[in-house]
Simulated assay, not measured.
Amino acid sequence: MDDSTPLTVDPELADQFAAMGVAVAVADAPVSEEVVEVMPANWNSLCVWLACQNQWRTVVRGTAIVLLGLDMNAVDVVMRRLKAADEVIEDLLVMETAALNVLHGAN
């Protein structure tokens, strides 16, 4: 499987997560592919965002892992490695805020 293939959770995998105390939704049907168009002006920001997907600061509260925000030291390294323009950080901050609002249930 490559990064472009969505992960679906079958009952067996859901049971494995449940054994670790994590509830996940089981896919009823295969995930359909949806095409999302990205404006050329936003392409670099999206590439950096995706490259930073595992650079979140977290804290454990009870049995939950709470995302606090992106680790900006790691984001800086990713941006330098990808030779991203300084303006990309502004887009990342907007995406980070939107993601945190979704993840924490704020609107």
Rank of each mutant, 00 (worst) to 15 (best):
Val48Met: 06
Trp56Val: 08
Ala18Gln: 15
Ala98Glu: 11
Pro40Leu: 06
Val48Asp: 01
Val36Ile: 13
Asp3Val: 13
Val31Arg: 13
Met20Pro: 01
Thr63Ala: 07
Leu50Ser: 13
Gly105Leu: 09
Val38Lys: 00
Leu103Phe: 09
Asn101Gln: 13
Ser32Asp: 11
Leu93Tyr: 06
Val77Thr: 09
Glu34Asp: 07
Ala74His: 06
Arg81Asp: 06
Gln53Pro: 01
Lys83Met: 02
Gly105Ser: 11
Ala85Glu: 11
Asn44Ser: 13
Val35Tyr: 08
Met20Thr: 06
Val77Asn: 01
Ala85Met: 06
Asn42Gln: 14
Glu37Ile: 00
Glu90Leu: 10
Ser4His: 13
Thr58Lys: 13
Met1Arg: 13
Ala74Phe: 03
Ala25Trp: 05
Pro30Leu: 10
Asn44Leu: 07
Asp86Val: 00
Trp49His: 10
Asn42Asp: 15
Ser4Thr: 14
Ala14Ile: 10
Gly105Cys: 11
Ala25Met: 10
Val48Ala: 08
Asp91Val: 00
Ala29Lys: 15
Arg61His: 10
Met20Phe: 15
Asp2Ile: 12
Pro40Ile: 02
Val9Ile: 15
Thr63Trp: 03
Val48Phe: 04
Gln16Asp: 14
Leu7Phe: 14
Asn54His: 15
Met72Phe: 06
Ala74Lys: 12
Trp56Ser: 08
Ala25Cys: 07
Asp10Phe: 14
Val26Phe: 09
Val35Ser: 08
Leu7Lys: 14
Ala18Glu: 15
Ala106Cys: 07
Asn107Ser: 08
Glu87Cys: 04
Cys52Tyr: 03
Leu82Arg: 04
Met72Glu: 05
Lys83Ser: 05
Leu67Gln: 01
Val36Trp: 08
Thr97Asn: 09
Asp15Glu: 15
Ile89Gln: 04
Val24Ala: 09
Glu96Arg: 04
Glu90Tyr: 05
Val94Ala: 06
Asp91Ala: 07
Thr97Trp: 04
Glu37Lys: 05
Val77Trp: 02
Val36Thr: 10
Met95Pro: 00
Met72Ala: 03
Thr63Ile: 04
Ser4Lys: 13
Gly62Arg: 06
Pro40Ser: 05
Glu37Asp: 08
Val35Pro: 01
Asp10Pro: 09
Glu33Asp: 11
Asp76Gln: 10
Val9Ala: 10
Ser45Phe: 03
Thr5Ile: 14
Val94Arg: 06
Arg81Tyr: 02
Arg81Gln: 10
Met79Val: 01
Asp76Leu: 03
Gly21Lys: 12
